[in-house]
Simulated scan of single mutants.
Amino acid sequence: MRPTVFLTLALLWISPATAVTITVQRGDTLTRLAVRHGTTVSALIQANPQLERGTLLAGMSLTLPQAGSAQTWTVEPGDTLYNIARRQSTTIGALIAANPGLDARRALKVGQRLILPVRSAPASARSTPAVRTASIRVGALPVQGRLTTPFRTGHEGIDLAAPTGTPIRAARAGVVSESRFDARTGWGWTVVVDHGDGFKTRYSHNSANLVLKGARVDAGRVIARVGSTGNSTGPHLDFRLTFQGTAINPLSLD
């Protein structure tokens, strides 16, 4: 796993009147294209009648099936909820909502089929064909330390060892929802940042908190310093990421 996480969550709205085309690459097959773009072979053929009369060739332009009906994604080796959401221009939350019972804490299984959220254009996009994107980026992990405890059952975060006093930086912009000594859970001095889109990040065992509850912080701002307060065996950062209360492995997002 790389210690750097780039989290780009894109909302992509495309007018139904705007055709989306792709260019066939060498080695592509209809099955690979269908899986890659979250559709089916039959839907691709229906959207591209010429495929019934000839062979798929590199350089061909194909029209993707129009959004508006439920499609599925078959999980391939290495797939995570994040990279599926990124490829489909949706969000992890929308995937979870479209697949009741999907547990973001568990790894996806190869061959597992997911229902993709229906991508529908808002009223403003229907009146004026356009593509509108909004993206959020999460840069480097809060501390460039040594991974000592990975994400696992019973420890739904990652531990990054670093010298006492090492700056801890906010992974994303947001509002500080907690800044306190958490004796009940054993996390010691803790900061929680609410990012406003269902995501929260938690930074624990700090030697000092440098922000107060209610403060707005930018990505990369120093919000605390590494320590060993609470239930800890040495100086480190316990870093946790949740989406709507569900723990997610931060290192699975890249």
Rank of each mutant, 00 (worst) to 15 (best):
M1R: 08
R2Q: 09
P3F: 10
L7A: 15
A10S: 14
L11M: 10
L11H: 15
A19L: 10
A19W: 00
T21V: 03
I22H: 04
L30G: 03
A34S: 01
V35A: 15
V35H: 13
T39L: 03
A43W: 01
A43G: 04
A47L: 03
E52W: 09
E52Y: 09
R53M: 02
T55F: 06
L56W: 00
A58E: 00
G59S: 05
S61N: 02
T63A: 10
P65L: 04
Q66C: 00
Q71K: 07
W73C: 07
D79R: 07
D79H: 09
Y82N: 07
N83E: 04
R86C: 01
R87W: 03
T91K: 11
I92F: 07
I96N: 00
N99Q: 04
P100R: 07
P100I: 06
R105S: 04
R106S: 04
I115K: 12
P117G: 07
P117L: 09
R119N: 13
S120E: 13
S120F: 11
A121T: 01
A125H: 03
R126H: 06
V131R: 09
T133D: 05
S135D: 07
S135A: 15
I136N: 13
I136L: 15
T149I: 04
G157E: 00
I158K: 05
I158Y: 04
D159C: 07
L160C: 03
A162V: 05
P163L: 08
P167T: 07
A173M: 13
V175A: 13
R180D: 11
R184E: 11
W187Q: 14
W187A: 14
D194P: 05
K200P: 03
H205D: 07
N206G: 08
N206C: 13
N206S: 14
V211R: 11
R221C: 01
R225P: 05
N231I: 08
G234P: 04
G234W: 04
P235W: 06
H236K: 09
D238Q: 12
L241H: 10
F243C: 01
T246G: 00
I248Y: 01
S252H: 05
S252R: 09
L253Y: 05
D254A: 13
